[in-house]
Computed example of a mutant assay.
Amino acid sequence: MRALAVMIALIAGPGFADTVIATRTIRPQELISAGDVRIDPANVDGAHQSLDEVIGQEARIALYAGRVVMQGSVGEPALIDRNQMVELIYARGGLRIAAEGRALARGGVGERIRVMNTGSRTVLFGLIAPDGTVLVTK
């Protein structure tokens, strides 16, 4: 019985994983909808394998029609744009300092970006919080 299962597996050949393909050209910073991508039975290393991983995400680079959507080419939609005024929050222990800052990069929730404290002109790094504030890390 086990020999029969092994023979069936060998005859079936190598398994293929699904790969996400762009159905139209998607520009950078554009949100990806269900009609923009499809699944093809192919095995491409480093490519997204599920539509759920891509739909609702933002294109980081141009995605061309008929080409594979690689990991790293899409990400969380940007919550903060470059040069946008943001609230900077520094919190350690019981201390919490809030200041006004300017974003020096574009990013989505959880991304680390550079920001400038507009009061002191100091450039800092921070993580973007879901509410649009930047949690200063250094």
Score class of each variant (00 low, 15 high):
Met1Lys: 12
Arg2Ile: 05
Arg2Tyr: 06
Ala3Ile: 07
Ala3Met: 09
Ala3Val: 06
Ala3His: 09
Leu4Ser: 11
Ala5Glu: 04
Ala5Lys: 05
Val6Gly: 04
Met7Leu: 11
Ile8Lys: 12
Leu10Asp: 05
Leu10Met: 07
Ile11Met: 10
Gly15Leu: 15
Asp18Thr: 09
Asp18Val: 02
Asp18Leu: 11
Ile21Lys: 11
Ala22Asn: 07
Arg24Ala: 04
Thr25Cys: 00
Arg27Leu: 11
Arg27Tyr: 00
Arg27Asn: 12
Pro28Ser: 01
Gln29Ala: 12
Ile32His: 03
Ile32Ser: 10
Ile32Ala: 02
Val37Phe: 03
Arg38Gln: 15
Ile39Thr: 10
Pro41Tyr: 11
Val44Lys: 06
Asp45Asn: 14
Asp45Ala: 15
Asp45Val: 14
Gly46Ala: 10
Ala47Tyr: 00
Ala47Thr: 04
Ser50Gln: 13
Ser50Met: 10
Glu53Cys: 08
Val54Ile: 00
Val54Phe: 00
Ile55Leu: 03
Glu58Arg: 14
Ala59His: 04
Ala59Ser: 13
Ala59Arg: 08
Ile61Gln: 09
Ile61Leu: 01
Ala62Trp: 03
Leu63Tyr: 00
Arg67Thr: 13
Val68Asp: 08
Val69Thr: 08
Met70Tyr: 00
Gln71Cys: 07
Gly72Val: 02
Gly75Asn: 06
Gly75Ser: 03
Glu76Ala: 14
Glu76Ser: 15
Pro77Val: 10
Ala78Thr: 06
Leu79Lys: 15
Leu79Val: 11
Leu79Trp: 03
Arg82Glu: 12
Arg82Phe: 01
Gln84Leu: 06
Tyr90Pro: 01
Ala91Asp: 05
Ala91Trp: 01
Arg92Ile: 10
Arg92Asn: 12
Arg92Leu: 10
Arg92His: 10
Leu95Asp: 12
Leu95Pro: 01
Ala99Asp: 04
Gly101Tyr: 02
Arg102Asn: 15
Ala103His: 08
Ala103Asp: 02
Ala103Pro: 08
Leu104Glu: 10
Leu104Cys: 03
Arg106Phe: 00
Gly107Met: 05
Gly108Phe: 11
Gly108Leu: 08
Val109Gly: 07
Val109Trp: 08
Val109His: 11
Gly110Thr: 13
Gly110Met: 12
Glu111Gly: 01
Ile113Arg: 05
Val115Pro: 06
Val115Asp: 11
Val115His: 02
Asn117Trp: 04
Gly119Gln: 03
Ser120Arg: 04
Arg121Gly: 13
Leu124Val: 05
Phe125Ala: 11
Leu127Tyr: 06
Leu127His: 12
Ala129Pro: 01
Ala129Asn: 10
Pro130Lys: 02
Gly132Pro: 06
Thr133Lys: 15
Val134Asn: 08
Leu135Met: 07
Leu135Arg: 09
Leu135Lys: 09
Thr137Gly: 04
Thr137Trp: 03
